[in-house]
C-alpha cells in the first residue's frame, strides 16, 4: 500500500515538473508580449530612431540584424554542409573524422564572449584594413564561426538519414559518387539541412556577446558590409542596461521574439515533412 502511495505521489511530482516548465515558458513569453505589444507598430519597425532611441523606430537594428545573419550564413552554410558531406560521403570513420567532429564539438562549446574577444582581435585589430574594423562584416563572420558546428551536425545527421540502400541502388545503376550525391543524398537530406540552417539563423539572430564589441550604437542605416551598424540584440542590451527607454527595449525584445517564434514554427513544418519522408521509405 505504501509503495502504491509513493507511486502516486511521484507521478504527481513528475507531472508538476512538466507543468512548471510550461509555466516558465509562458511567463517569459507573456512578459515580453504584454510589455512589448504597446510599442510595436509598422512605423516602429520602419522608422529611424529619434532622440537617442527614446522615440521613433528600430529600422537600423533590423537592417543590421538581417545583414549579419546573411553574412554568417553565407560563410557557414557552404562550409558546414560541405564538411558534413565530406564526413558522410567521402570518408570512412577513423582518425580524420574523429578530429573533425571533436573540433566541431569543441567549437560549439566555446563561450560566446570568447567568440567576441576572438572576433575583436582577429577582425578588428589584425584584419581591420580588410574588414573595415568593427563592421557588420566582422560581426557576421564571427557569428558564422559560432553557428558552423550546428550546421555541420544537423547536416551530417540529415545525410546519414538517407538510407544506405538508396545509395547502393544508385551505384548499381551505374551512377558515379557525385551523381549519387546530387540525385540521391542531397534531395533526401534537404529538409534536415534546411531545419539546421533555420536553427542556426535563430541562434545568429539572437546572439549578443560575440558581436557586442563590433557594433556601433549610431542610429544610421549601414551603408555597406564594411560599414558599422547595430543589431536587435545589441540595441536591446544597450537600451535595457543603460535604462534609456524600457518601452523601446520591450518593443525590440518583442520584435526579436516574433522572429524566433516564426523560425521555430518553420522548423516545425520542416520536421513534420521530414518524418513523413522517413515513414515513406
Amino acid at each position: 500500500m505504501l509503495s502504491k502511495n509513493a507511486d502516486r505521489l511521484a507521478k504527481i511530482w513528475l507531472w508538476l515538473s512538466a507543468l512548471v516548465i510550461i509555466l516558465v515558458l509562458l511567463s517569459v513569453l507573456g512578459y515580453v508580449f504584454i510589455n512589448g505589444i504597446g510599442a510595436i507598430s509598422v512605423s516602429f519597425l520602419l522608422d529611424m530612431p529619434q532622440n537617442n532611441w527614446r522615440e521613433g523606430g528600430i529600422y537600423p537594428a533590423i537592417v543590421g540584424s538581417l545583414i549579419v545573419v546573411f553574412v554568417a550564413l553565407a560563410f557557414a552554410a557552404p562550409v558546414g554542409v560541405g564538411t558534413a558531406m565530406y564526413l558522410t560521403e567521402f570518408r570512412t570513420e577513423g582518425l580524420v573524422t574523429r578530429i573533425i567532429r571533436t573540433s566541431s564539438d569543441a567549437l560549439n562549446a566555446v563561450p560566446s564572449i570568447v567568440f567576441g574577444l576572438f572576433g575583436l582581435s582577429l577582425f578588428v585589430f589584425y584584419l581591420g584594413d580588410y574588414t573595415g574594423g568593427p563592421s557588420l562584416l566582422s560581426a557576421g563572420l564571427t557569428l558564422g564561426f559560432m553557428i558552423l558546428p550546428t550546421i555541420i551536425r544537423t547536416s551530417e545527421v540529415a545525410m546519414r538519414n538517407v538510407p544506405y540502400a538508396e545509395r547502393m541502388e544508385s551505384f548499381g545503376m551505374g551512377a558515379s559518387k557525385l551523381q549519387t550525391i546530387r540525385n540521391i543524398v542531397l534531395p533526401g537530406a534537404v529538409p534536415g539541412i534546411a531545419t539546421g540552417l533555420i536553427l542556426s539563423i535563430g541562434r545568429a539572430v539572437g546572439e549578443t556577446a560575440p558581436i557586442i564589441f563590433m557594433v556601433a550604437l549610431n542610429p544610421t542605416i549601414p551603408k555597406s558590409l564594411f560599414g558599422s551598424g547595430n543589431t536587435l540584440t545589441t540595441q536591446l542590451y544597450y537600451l535595457s542596461m543603460e535604462g534609456i527607454s524600457m518601452k523601446v527595449a520591450f518593443g525590440t525584445a518583442l520584435t526579436l521574439m516574433l522572429v524566433i517564434l516564426t523560425l521555430n514554427a518553420i522548423t516545425r513544418v520542416f520536421k513534420k515533412r521530414l518524418s513523413r519522408n522517413l515513414r515513406r521509405c
Binding site: V28, Y31, L199, T233, L236, S240, M257
Partner: peptide
Amino acid sequence: AEIAPGWAKRIVRPAIELLAGIPSIIYGVF
C-alpha cells in the same frame, strides 16, 4: 521518457525547444 501520454509530449517537447531557442538577452530582460 516514461509517463507522459502522447498529447502531453506534444505540448512539453515544443515548449522545451522554444525555451532553448529564446535568445539569452531576452532572458536577461525578463
